[in-house]
Design a protein around this nucleic acid. Structure first.
Length: 568
RNA sequence: GCGCUUGUAGCUCAGCUGGAUAGAGUACCUGGCUACGAACUAGGGGGUCGCAGGUUCGACUCCUGCCAAGCGCGCCA
């Protein structure tokens, strides 16, 4: 519909130029937008404002000229010039109710688009790396935010026609893994954090004790048996990593987050990919030796200082395998890669990108994309809960899921822009009342389902065909507002996917639910506005609108990984 | 000190990549069910969009400077 209006305006301006009403001027892109306020019609265009200066005409005068030259179109009821010079378009009724037919026809596919298709109409590949928690402890709220945001981005990209690969990267090769193993080993030997032999950077959490007990009891985890040998450091390390990976998998499953690929840092070493990456960087002349270490000239790619690649003890710093890993992503054919991670790691972005540029393999500047989420603070009983991995005070993701439920946790963690700080108020999330937006949206869905059940109970069966044929009977203010909101959904999905911004979906759903509740409630003020009226045509038209609304709520909630209950 | 991010109603946050009178929730005040589920809804009060400049027909949005908060600035990951 926007396209049609755009063409009409284009024709009008072309006519004006050829009849020399307008000088021949460069045209900016004609933007036609959905109006926010229904008194402004259905669609609006600001072209007269944009062209005012170059044409030498006053905006309102120019708008009037454009309207006069506008070709007739059966879909346009009338136009209006408003404010400083906006042209508002009022469309015939069927353009407003058409969205209902589209929703009914497309069902769960409604709202999807093909923006992720290439010129041949094939889905383009995108890889999204998220969570990527180190296997040194259970997942906490921060990981939860990464999981919720990352997973929703994946769902948005899929809905936009991309072929999405979800990937989890384990840093299972660094010093921290040795700390982990040492901590577990100490526990196996009966040493606690208060003993003098306890490792300096040891992990003190309760889960370490449990892990040690499992190992000593010889339990199996992911095909690895606990050897019950407290002196075997490497066996303990392998067991600990397997155990914690398994714990994380269980949490992620409970959080409804799945991955296609798990990559291991240790593999990059054993496959020689770290070594070959370093060789290329040296061969390309972007390194130098100093103070016994090997440095990468990251300053040539915008960093504020050069960075050590190989420490004087011979080991590589963490970002070297990161570069090797991203080179591998590129070689796997992903020209679009998104990394979702905590903002506390933002300094790695410059280094990884610099390393990739220095490899000189044709990777574009600014590749890969990053989505960073800010810190999550947790409030419980009105107090902030401090998160400290070593001290073991910890709000785990599984705690949250258990206490407030998967739906609420996911919604809360994804409902705000990733780059604003988030306070997770457990007391608020626990309230199953007014304050909780998740229930508000789910309730709207359940309410429609309830009406459908009522319809059957009262022998007022829902006849979809009859409903579709009588949509022009939808005329009340609340019905029109609801139609308008439904029509905005596809744009909302496309924009959210483009911006990697799933929080827009959360806001949209809040809005849609409000429209639905307002429509429903209008029936308690005016009985003739109820859905289940006696008139067959009107009732079924309304039930069709209700079903369409339900479908869009379900589709939207699905993008957030939140369930759409039929009963609550 | 430098870099990244943020600053919008008392509180928690949106604001659709420059548009019309800045919007929701919450809290506060006033109404609506012998129920198509009131986990809802109608209305009211509440704003120098951190501050100061600039860009233009128009700025919460873009630019510059300043103020404040969070996070980074390791031969840790």
């Amino acid at each position: 519909m926007k396209d049609i209006i755009q063409q009409l305006i284009q024709q009008a301006i072309d006519n004006m130029i050829s009849s020399e009403v307008l000088p021949s001027i460069a045209l900016p892109a004609i933007k036609v937008e959905r109006t926010r306020d229904s008194s402004h019609g259905d669609l609006a265009c600001n072209i007269a404002l944009a062209l005012a200066k170059s044409s030498g005409l006053a905006p309102r005068e120019l708008a009037a000229l454009i309207c006069e030259n506008l070709p007739d179109n059966e879909l346009v009821l009338s136009t209006d010039i408003a404010g400083p010079g906006f042209i508002n378009f009022f469309l015939v009724k069927t353009t407003q109710t058409d969205v209902v037919l589209n929703i009914i026809e497309q069902g769960e596919r409604f709202g999807q688009n093909q923006n992720g298709h290439d010129s041949k109409g094939q889905p383009k590949a995108v890889q999204v790396e998220f969570v990527s928690a180190n296997p040194t402890g259970p997942l906490h709220v921060g990981h939860g935010r990464g999981a919720a945001v990352g997973d929703s981005i994946c769902r948005l990209l899929s809905a936009s026609g991309w072929n999405v690969t979800r990937e989890f990267y384990y840093n299972d090769a660094g010093q921290q893994i040795n700390n982990l193993a040492a901590s577990v080993q100490s526990r196996c030997q009966g040493i606690g954090p208060n003993d003098p032999q306890w490792p300096e950077d040891g992990y003190r959490g309760e889960y370490i004790t449990e892990l040690a007990a499992y190992y000593m009891a010889g339990k199996m985890v992911n095909g690895i048996a606990g050897l019950a040998d407290a002196d075997n450091h490497s066996a303990i390390r392998d067991y600990a990593v397997a155990y914690l990976r398994n714990e994380q998998d269980i949490d992620l499953q409970a959080f409804r987050v799945e991955f296609d690929v798990f990559s291991l840092e240790s593999d990059l070493y054993t496959d020689g990919k770290v070594e070959s990456t370093v060789k290329t960087l040296i061969a390309n002349g972007f390194t130098y030796e100093s103070e016994g270490a090997l440095w990468l000239k990251t300053t040539e790619f915008g960093d504020d200082k050069d960075r050590v690649m190989r420490k004087s003890d011979g080991g590589y710093t963490y970002f070297v395998p990161d570069v090797a890993y991203h080179l591998e992503k590129w070689q796997r054919g992903f020209t679009t890669v998104i990394n979702e991670q905590g903002a506390d790691h933002h300094s790695t972005i410059t280094r990884v990108r610099a390393g990739l540029q220095a490899l000189q393999v044709g990777i574009p500047q600014g590749w890969p994309d990053y989505v960073l989420h800010q810190m999550v603070t947790v409030m419980r009983d009105g107090e902030e809960v401090k998160i400290s991995k070593r001290a073991g005070s910890y709000v785990t993701l599984s705690d949250l899921i258990e206490q407030v439920g998967c739906d609420t946790t996911r919604y809360f963690l994804v409902a705000r822009r990733a780059d604003s700080q988030l306070t997770f108020d457990i007391d608020l999330a626990l309230q199953k009342t007014n304050d909780n937006p998740v229930f508000y949206i789910q309730y709207a869905h359940a309410r429609v389902c309830s009406v459908m059940r009522q319809a059957a109970d009262k022998s007022l069966p829902f006849d979809l065909t009859l409903g579709k044929a009588n949509l022009e009977l939808l005329v009340t203010d609340t019905e029109l507002a609801l139609l308008k909101t439904l029509a905005a959904y596809p744009d909302c999905v496309a924009n959210s996917a483009r911006d990697f911004a799933p929080h827009n979906i959360a806001s949209y759903l809040r809005d849609l639910a409000a429209n639905l509740h307002a429509w429903y409630a209008s029936g308690s003020q005016q009985k003739e506005w109820q859905l289940l009226v006696a008139d067959d045509k009107l009732r079924n038209a309304r039930l069709t609108l209700a079903e369409a609304s339900r479908q869009v709520i379900e589709n939207g909630l699905n993008l957030l990984g939140v369930s759409a209950p039929t009963k609550m």
